[in-house]
Simulated assay, not measured.
Amino acid sequence: MNREAIDALLDKLSAPSAGQPDPRTQAIVGRIVRDLFYTIEDFDVTPSEFWSALNYVAEAGPEMGLIAAGLGFEHFLDVRLDEAEAKLGLEGGTPRTIEGPLYVAGAPEADGHARLDNGESPGETLLMQGRVLGDDGQPVPGALVEVWHANHLGNYSYFDSTQPPFHLRASIRADADGRYSFRSVVPVGYSVPPAGKTQQLLDRLGRHGHRPAHIHFFVSAPGHRKLTTQINIDGDPYLWDDFAFATREGLVPDVKRQPQHNGNAFGIDGAFAQIEFDFHLLPEHASAPAAEIERLRAAA
């Protein structure tokens, strides 16, 4: 079919037949359908290929969050938010990066300091601490730091039934000086499920599904834009080759190995890894797009 014939068909298909359409929904869906029609025509997609693709999407179900990250959609949305903020003069904060699909709402809240592991988790002891600061460099007292990461097998509690509830997850209320800290174990990198739909697609694209070791954060406080970010563990072989495109400059802090005596204030017995990291929040702005993203999330 030529473009004129396709456009005539699209006009017919998009004509309202019952009630008044929502203009934005109509425009976006129309654009998506048009682009897919053009794609089918340009690549001579067969009916079998079309239905195979549709079946793939239906079967992917729970992995759609991984697929969105792996195809770069989450990173693309982050870059668009960066651009929108920069146009309003909102710059200089901690870089945002992807949330991923493994957050669980409701982690217990601790004041100032939390222990994420249960004392039985294999791995190197980790102490991470720092401050939450505003764009003026002043502390943000009472900021909420939500943190979550994988265990030594690359699995997350709630999604992995062998782990206790909220294992390696916490909500930490920063103190009057904006300080937060937590004790945990150094996470490891992991891969998408090897027999899953995400890896199936990545194989067809000639891409791997590995993520470097990382720790996720939400940081929020009244009057400031919510920060969604993660830090990556320096030295990981996939540090700058993340299948989800989440590694960004400014999110790879130094990991310092410390002797026993430096950790006594946190009850650490023996050597440990230490990360110092300050979060810098941007002020809220009435004209900026929402930093609080609405999406389906798990809740325990």
Score class of each variant (00 low, 15 high):
F76G: 06
D7I: 06
P259I: 01
Q258H: 02
R179A: 09
Y158T: 11
P16W: 05
F245R: 06
E109S: 15
F277H: 10
R3F: 01
D135H: 13
V45Y: 04
Q260E: 01
L153P: 02
G70R: 11
L36C: 14
S17T: 05
E4V: 07
P222K: 15
P23M: 11
F37Y: 14
P122I: 04
A69I: 08
E85S: 09
P187Q: 06
D22N: 04
L77I: 05
D278N: 09
R183Q: 01
P165E: 09
Y180C: 02
E284M: 06
F277D: 05
A84P: 11
P16L: 10
R257Q: 02
P289E: 09
A150C: 08
L66A: 14
S184I: 01
G270A: 00
V104I: 08
Y238S: 07
T97Y: 03
Y158K: 08
P164Q: 03
L251R: 02
G223P: 15
T229L: 15
S171T: 05
E120T: 11
E41H: 09
P101A: 15
K87R: 13
Q20F: 01
P212V: 14
F37S: 15
A86Q: 08
E85T: 06
L227W: 10
L239I: 11
E74T: 11
E292S: 11
V45H: 04
S161Y: 00
D241G: 03
L153R: 09
D254C: 00
H113I: 13
L81Q: 14
R173S: 00
A174G: 00
G196V: 01
F245C: 03
R295Y: 10
L71Y: 12
A213Y: 08
L133E: 12
Q163K: 04
L127T: 12
E146Y: 09
A195I: 00
N55F: 04
A288M: 12
T162P: 00
H167K: 10
L133S: 09
V255Q: 03
D160N: 04
Q274N: 01
Q163G: 01
N232E: 05
G130R: 07
F50G: 08
P122K: 04
L296A: 14
E59W: 14
G89P: 12
E91T: 15
V132L: 07
R183T: 01
A5R: 07
